[in-house]
C-alpha cells in the first residue's frame, strides 16, 4: 500500500497546536482542538471523520480560510495569519468542495477552468496551456467547450479539480468532495486523485467519511469531536477497530470479514483490501 516513493520528508503544511472555535454572538461551538500535523510533499493524506467531527474545519485551517485562535498553521513557510500573503497561500493550497454545482462560476467549462489563472494575472498563452493540461489530467478534454449543466456529479467534480490544478497548486485539498456523489462518481474522483498523486506527484489531502477511500493513503488522521484520535498508515489505523467505532466510522467489508473469520478461529490476518482477504481465505483451503 505504502509504495508511494514520492512522499518526502519535506513538510508543505504544518499545523502546530492549532485550536479554533466558531463564534456567533454568545454562541460558541467547538471546532477543533490542539491539532498537530504535517503534510509532507508528495504524500496522499486522508483525514477521516464522521459529520461534525471537525474535519472540514481542519481543512479550512490548512488553506488559510480560517485562522487559528491559538497555535499556528504555516504553508511553505508562510504563516496563514499573515494578511498580506492570503492569496499566495490560497494559490498554493487549492481546495475542492463538496457540492459540485456551487463551485463553478462560468457556463462554459474551459472558462471555468481558466477563472483561477485569470485571477492570478497569468498571461493568456500560459492559461491556454494550463487549461489544456488540467482538463487532460482529469480526463475531461472532450468537454472543454461544453456546458457544465449536462454533466454527471462525478464529471462536474473532475472539472472542479481541473479548475484548481490550473492554478498550479502545491497541495490539493478535497473537502468531502465525494460525499454527494453516487458510487460511480466517487470512483471517478478516487481514480483521478490517485492518478494525480501517483503519476503527477501532487500532494493530496482528502477529507472524507468513507474508510474505503483511505485504503490507498500514505497516512491517515482520524478525527472525532474536534480532536485527532489516531493516525498512521492505513493498516495501523484500521486495526484499531474500537477507536474507529467510537469515531462513528465503518471498516471496509474485507476488514470486517477478516475479523469475523479470525474470531471463528481461522488463521486470517487482518485484511484491508478485497485482494488480501481473498488471498488469505484461499490459502486456508
Amino acid at each position: 500500500m505504502n509504495d508511494n516513493a514520492r512522499a518526502t520528508q519535506e513538510a508543505v503544511i504544518t499545523a502546530d497546536g492549532v485550536s479554533f472555535s466558531y463564534r456567533s454572538g454568545e454562541y460558541v461551538s467547538r471546532g477543533v482542538r490542539e491539532i498537530n500535523l504535517e503534510v509532507m510533499r508528495g504524500e496522499f493524506l486522508v483525514i477521516l471523520g464522521r459529520n461534525g467531527s471537525g474535519k472540514s474545519t481542519l481543512a479550512k485551517l490548512l488553506n488559510g480560510f480560517l485562522v487559528p485562535d491559538t497555535g499556528k498553521v504555516t504553508v511553505l513557510g508562510t504563516d496563514t495569519s499573515d494578511d498580506d500573503k492570503v492569496y499566495e497561500v490560497r494559490s498554493k493550497v487549492g481546495m475542492v468542495f463538496q457540492n459540485p454545482d456551487n463551485q463553478m462560476v462560468a457556463s462554459v467549462i474551459e472558462n471555468d477552468v481558466a477563472f483561477g489563472p485569470e485571477n492570478l494575472g497569468i498571461p493568456r498563452e500560459e492559461i491556454e496551456k494550463r487549461v489544456t493540461a488540467a482538463l487532460e489530467i482529469v480526463g475531461m478534454s472532450e468537454y472543454r467547450k461544453g456546458s457544465p449543466n449536462k454533466l454527471s456529479g462525478g464529471q462536474k467534480q473532475r472539472i472542479a479539480i481541473a479548475a484548481i490544478l490550473a492554478m498550479l497548486p502545491e497541495v490539493v485539498i478535497l473537502d468531502e468532495s465525494t460525499a454527494m456523489l453516487d458510487p460511480k462518481g466517487r470512483r471517478e474522483i478516487m481514480e483521478t486523485v490517485l492518478k494525480l498523486n501517483r503519476e503527477k506527484g501532487m500532494t493530496v489531502v482528502l477529507i472524507t467519511h468513507y474508510m474505503d477511500e483511505a485504503i490507498e493513503a500514505d497516512r491517515i488522521f482520524v478525527m472525532n469531536d474536534g480532536e485527532i484520535v489516531s493516525s498512521g498508515a492505513p493498516r495501523e489505523v484500521f486495526a484499531d477497530a474500537e477507536s474507529l467505532k467510537a469515531a462513528g466510522l465503518e471498516l471496509p467489508a474485507a476488514s470486517r470479514i477478516s475479523l469475523k473469520l479470525a474470531e471463528a478461529g481461522y488463521d486470517v490476518p487482518f485484511a484491508i483490501t478485497d485482494e488480501e482477504l481473498a488471498d488469505s481465505v484461499c490459502r486456508l483451503k
Binding site: F65, Y87, G94, M95, N102, Q103, V105, N119, L120, I164
Partner: peptide, 10 residues
C-alpha cells in the same frame, strides 16, 4: 469557492 480560486487576488 471564489476565494479558493483567488478572486480579486490582483
Amino acid at each position: 469557492a471564489l476565494d479558493a480560486r483567488c478572486y480579486n487576488a490582483t
